[in-house]
């Protein structure tokens, strides 16, 4: 049984048919990258998994249970964390409060806080600072930390390197490697070499469907089957 399984998922924004039958499976402890050009449905796939934009057809199964049509908080509560595109910090809350929101009420907040502050010492230094006053890299760290608390089994990470300086991207990659030791990752990433470096397997999307998939070992952007889908 796969940890996450999408079967023939069709998702719409209004009348726009974005996902046109996505099939994919993610096994426990692996890192899976979703790649493809802008607008092919990568972010929508993550939103469909979390039921933020529920599929109209097809099924999303998590830990063997069909979660299609369930409320987002219920799906997230089953153990799915989300690091969204553009981070979506609660800018007027402090760093610590941002972490607090993500820790389930029944969990041990002190322990969870120590866990992420050990992983990201910068966050501990700025724990009383409002998140809007953090740098882009620090915000990304906080977004990842927020996704990691609460014993999530799966972390959905959307464009983690977007808008960050190369040095900061390295730190983010390190953070994601740390995260992958604890949890399974599904990664949406425009930076193809970075995605191939981090991930064990990939799914290549085009026009809302999976057109290629496989192990990332030895795959480069020059590969014919990849290039024709990634070039503008």
């Amino acid at each position: 049984m796969s940890l996450l399984e999408l079967t023939d998922v069709h998702t719409y924004y209004g009348e726009s048919h974005i996902l046109q039958g996505v099939d994919l499976a993610v096994e426990e402890s692996e890192i899976v990258a979703l790649i493809g050009r802008n607008g092919v449905g990568k972010t929508t796939t993550l939103r469909s998994i979390l039921q933020l934009t529920p599929p109209r057809e097809g099924t999303v199964r998590f830990k063997g249970e069909d979660v299609t049509g369930d409320s987002t908080h219920d799906v997230a509560g089953r153990g799915i964390g989300w690091v969204p595109e553009e981070r979506r910090m609660f800018g007027y809350l402090t760093v610590e409060e941002n972490v607090r929101v993500a820790v389930p009420p029944e969990a041990d907040f002190e322990a969870e806080r120590e866990y992420v502050f050990d992983l990201f010492p910068d966050l501990e230094r700025f724990r009383e600072k409002e998140a809007r006053n953090l740098s882009g890299g620090q915000q990304q760290m906080l977004a990842i930390a927020r996704g990691m608390v609460g014993n999530n089994d799966l972390l959905l990470v959307d464009e983690p390197s977007e808008g960050l300086a190369p040095l900061i991207v390295e730190q983010v990659v390190d953070a994601l490697r740390e995260a992958s030791a604890e949890t399974t990752l599904v990664l949406v990433e425009q930076n193809f070499p970075l995605a191939m470096d981090l991930a064990d397997r990939f799914y290549l999307l085009d026009h809302g469907t999976v057109v290629e998939s496989g192990a990332t070992d030895g795959v480069t952007a020059d590969d014919d089957r990849i290039r024709r889908y990634l070039s503008a």
């Binding site: 987002t72 908080h73 509560g77 800018g91 007027y92 409060e97 607090r100 929101v101 609460g150």
Partner: peptide
């Protein structure tokens, strides 16, 4: 805690929901 959820939700209710909280 509920006050915190409300302040967070005032900024981004969808994000709060995606963190497992019944907004």
């Amino acid at each position: 805690l509920y006050g915190l959820y409300i302040r967070a939700g005032s900024e981004d209710a969808e994000m709060v929901e995606a963190l497992g909280i019944d907004v």
